[in-house]
C-alpha cells in the first residue's frame, strides 16, 4: 500500500491540467503612508479602542512612568528578561521599595509554578503597526514566549520610531520571510472574548491588561 502522502499527491497530480497562470493579480488597496505624528496617533487610537493602555513617554522618563505604575498596582513581582537591553536598564535602576524584578532565566519546566503565580511581565517589542493598532513581538531565548501571555498584566515597551504603516510594510521592510523566528506575534490588546451573547469581556486566558510604554525616541 502506498503512503497517504503518495496517494494524496498522486490524486492531485492526476487531476485535469490546471488553467494557465491567470492574468495579472489584483493588488491590495493601498495603505496610506502616514507621517510620524499621524502614525503614532493612529496607533494610539486603535490600541486604546481595544482597551490597551498607552502611556506616552520618552527615553528620559519611561522608567519613572513604569515605576509609578508598578507601585500603584501593588504587584507581587515583575517578570523580566535578564541580559536584554531592557532587562539591563531595569536592573541598573530598580528601587528596593518596588515589587521585586523576577528574571525568566530557567527553562519553563523548572519555573512553571512561579511563572503562573506572578502578577505582571514586561517585554520589549520589535515594533508596532499603525493601521492595525498592534504590537509586533518576536520572543527569543532571552525573552521567552510565555512572558507576554501568562501574567495578568503585560507591560510592553515600544520605541515610537518602530511603528510601521502596515503589516505588509513591516514584513517587506524587515525581510521577515528570510528569517521567521520560532514564534512571531501580533498583539492588539488584552485578551478578550465575545463568546457569550457577543458581549465583549476582557481578560480571558491571556493578560487582563496590556500597558504600552510608548517611548518617543
Amino acid at each position: 500500500m502506498n503512503s497517504p502522502r503518495d496517494n494524496i499527491l498522486a490524486r492531485l497530480r492526476a487531476a485535469a491540467p490546471q488553467e494557465a497562470t491567470s492574468a495579472r493579480e489584483a493588488d491590495a488597496p493601498p495603505t496610506p503612508e502616514l507621517g510620524r505624528a499621524d502614525k503614532i496617533a493612529r496607533f494610539n487610537r486603535l490600541m486604546e479602542a481595544m482597551h490597551a493602555e498607552v502611556l506616552l513617554t520618552d527615553s528620559q522618563n519611561w522608567r519613572i512612568a513604569l515605576k509609578d505604575l508598578v507601585r500603584k498596582r501593588g504587584l507581587n513581582g515583575l517578570l523580566y528578561a535578564p541580559g536584554t537591553p531592557l532587562g539591563n536598564a531595569l536592573e541598573a535602576d530598580w528601587d528596593s521599595d518596588l515589587p521585586p524584578l523576577v528574571g525568566y532565566s530557567q527553562e519553563v519546566e523548572q519555573c512553571k509554578e512561579r511563572l503562573f503565580a506572578i502578577d505582571a511581565g514586561i517585554t520589549s517589542t520589535k515594533g508596532g503597526i499603525a493601521d492595525l493598532g498592534a504590537l509586533i513581538l518576536w520572543p527569543n531565548a532571552s525573552e521567552p514566549r510565555l512572558m507576554s501571555l501568562v501574567p495578568a498584566i503585560h507591560i510592553a515597551v515600544l520605541e515610537a520610531s518602530r511603528i510601521h504603516d502596515s503589516l505588509a510594510e513591516a514584513m517587506r521592510q524587515e525581510r521577515w520571510a528570510e528569517q521567521m523566528p520560532t514564534n512571531a506575534l501580533l498583539i492588539s490588546g488584552p485578551s478578550k472574548t465575545a463568546d457569550i451573547e457577543l458581549v465583549l469581556t476582557f481578560g480571558v486566558h491571556g493578560p487582563k491588561e496590556l500597558i504600552v510604554l510608548l517611548v518617543e525616541d
Binding site: S105, E107, V108, T182, N183, S191, K192
Partner: peptide, 17 residues
C-alpha cells in the same frame, strides 16, 4: 487580539515553547 505565527519547535537555548 493575537496573531500567532509558529515556525519551529523550541530551539536550542530557548526557554519555552
Amino acid at each position: 487580539t493575537y496573531f500567532n505565527m509558529i515556525t519551529s519547535p523550541r530551539k536550542q537555548g530557548e526557554k519555552d515553547g
